[in-house]
């Protein structure tokens, strides 16, 4: 067992790494507190919507999870471009972490949307342009993970994944703007007025609702998503360390 300590591969064991770990724990603690606060605000502080009642409260999570996913997928683009330029695997870890975290957040976005739609639109799902493009966005990143799994050479896997990650952001941008270019969508635009006259379930926001929405948006975008990505990158580093250790043991 003593041999494990000799491996020069652990970032955590070094002085700097220990500080970084404490920083991550602190950051995670703040994030958890903020997320709980967000839920509390959404459930108790924000005013009740007159027409939709308490169902409307799911919107805070619904919108925030999409923006969290947007941030995560943007991290994938940054990671992909930086990897192609520098060829340092740490950038690919960032890209992969972005995709995995973003995919989960996108799924939360789809699921909360369906739960909201059941009482308001009287259906879980409909093939509305916005819903379709959001579903396709989710599937694009599942395809990214499949593409990664299909390539054996780690070097080639990183390069291909980087390029696909950059390309895939198109579906995210498409989902963002489709509500403005397709007037026949029934999905309401929450920020700004809905250009669609057919939007079902839009609402006016009181100041307590705006505060809650902004607070939740910022928390999910700048605390929850980065914290999850950070943990995922650490996991990837640990995985790499384990693999290298296995290799060294096997060579003995």
């Amino acid at each position: 067992m003593t041999a494990v300590k000799d491996f020069p591969l652990s970032a955590e064991k070094t002085k700097d790494g220990g500080g970084r770990t404490r920083l991550l724990y602190g950051f995670t603690g703040i994030t958890l507190a903020l997320v709980v606060l967000c839920l509390g605000m959404a459930l108790f502080y924000a005013g009740q919507d007159i027409t939709q009642g308490d169902v409307q409260r799911i919107f805070y999570t619904h919108i925030s999870s999409f923006f969290g996913a947007f941030i995560a997928f943007s991290a994938t683009v940054v990671g992909g471009i930086q990897y192609l330029r520098t060829r340092h695997p740490k950038w690919d870890s960032l890209a992969l972490a972005g995709v995995e975290v973003g995919t989960v957040l996108a799924f939360i976005n789809l699921a909360t949307g369906a739960i909201w739609a059941r009482p308001i639109w009287n259906t879980w799902w409909t093939w509305d342009p916005r819903l379709t493009s959001a579903a396709v966005m989710f599937l694009t990143y599942v395809a990214y993970l499949m593409l990664r799994n299909g390539i054996d050479s780690p070097e080639r896997r990183r390069v291909f994944a980087s390029i696909y990650g950059v390309l895939a952001i198109a579906t995210v941008i498409f989902t963002l703007i489709i509500i403005r270019i397709r007037p026949d969508t029934i999905h309401p635009a929450v920020i700004g007025s809905s250009p669609s006259t057919g939007a079902e379930g839009g609402f006016e926001m009181s100041s307590s609702m705006v505060t809650t929405l902004l607070f939740t948006l910022l928390t999910w975008s700048f605390f929850l998503t980065p914290a999850l990505i950070w943990w995922r990158i650490r996991l990837e580093n640990t995985l790499e360390r384990v693999n290298k250790m296995k290799q060294i043991y096997l060579e003995r």
Binding site: S133, V136, M137, L139, T140, A143, M146, L147, Y164, L167, A168, A170, T171, F174
Partner: peptide
């Protein structure tokens, strides 16, 4: 699988 979502 890779092309269809991107081409949507």
């Amino acid at each position: 699988i890779a092309l269809l979502p991107v081409a949507l």
